[in-house]
């Protein structure tokens, strides 16, 4: 077992202590205020770890571009994406699965399982899964109950395989009561805000984390892994 395994999932460049395997985190903050970069920064781990990103607000191509922009190392053998954009068929490959719409929660869930197993079979034991963002899934759902079922299934799977799950949502774009109840599915939350031109984060519900707000350079969160 590597040191990284012993230490759980490590976040270089983000003021968070490592979290244990099987942890699911909800990241909340403004979509236009660094939420995407923070989520991608939390997904950027050591080179032996895999990444599985569900891109619901952006295309797979954009997500990869953004990951590179924050200093992330894109290794196709350990990075898989699920593109929920309706015109995603152009970019589909073994590493990129497309589903027709963010409303297709079953399709997203099945692609997640398939890609996860693909990463695992290729020797990637530890996988960080990201969902950017939960907003379209809530918006496209006729009823919120299937979204709860989807989140329980995916977070349960992540817990079962000792993975890390990070799901982003902009609370300003959603009903407050919905976000509060959806947050129940996760082990803890990381909040992002902008103050005086800097980005700050704080965590709730995750053990061993620093109290209060801490500054973070969201545009370079992945560079520390290189």
């Amino acid at each position: 077992m590597s040191q990284a395994n012993d230490a759980g999932y490590v976040f270089e460049g983000v003021p968070l202590e490592p979290v244990s395997e099987g942890t699911n985190i909800l990241v909340t903050g403004p979509s236009l205020g660094g939420l995407r970069q923070l989520l991608l920064g939390l997904l950027a781990g050591p080179s032996e770890e895999g990444i599985l990103l569900v891109a619901a607000d952006v295309s797979a191509t954009e997500a990869v571009g953004d990951f590179k922009a924050i200093g992330g190392n894109v290794d196709p053998s350990r990075m898989c994406l699920i593109d929920c954009a309706q015109d995603s068929s152009e970019s589909e490959s073994e590493q990129i699965h497309g589903v027709a719409t963010p409303a297709d929660l079953t399709g997203i869930g099945m692609s997640f399982s398939q890609l996860y197993e693909q990463l695992h079979a290729s020797g990637t034991a530890r996988v960080r899964t990201g969902l950017y963002t939960l907003g379209p899934l809530l918006m496209y759902a006729d009823d919120i109950r299937p979204v709860y079922r989807f989140l329980h299934t995916v977070t349960g799977r992540i817990q079962s395989v000792d993975g890390l799950g990070v799901c982003a949502v902009d609370p300003a774009a959603q009903d407050e009561r919905t976000i509060k109840s959806v947050a129940q599915t996760f082990d803890g939350q990381v909040e992002l805000r902008e103050r005086d031109g800097t980005h700050q984060i704080r965590s709730h519900g995750l053990s061993g984390q620093p109290d209060g707000w801490h500054s973070v350079d969201i545009n370079g969160t992945a560079r520390s892994h290189q």
Binding site: H97, V99, A103, D104, L105, T106, G107, G109, M110, S111, S113, Q114, E117, H120, A121, A141, D142, D143, P146, R149, F150, T153, G156, R157, S160
Partner: peptide, 30 residues
């Protein structure tokens, strides 16, 4: 995903592809 019935939101399910190595060990764990 093409096999998913049209009403996808009513068919959320855990999925385990049978072709992966050691699949029944994974099934038991799941």
């Amino acid at each position: 995903p093409a096999d998913v019935p049209a009403d996808s939101q009513s068919h959320i399910v855990e999925y385990l592809p049978r072709s992966i190595p050691g699949v029944r060990e994974r099934l038991v764990s799941l």
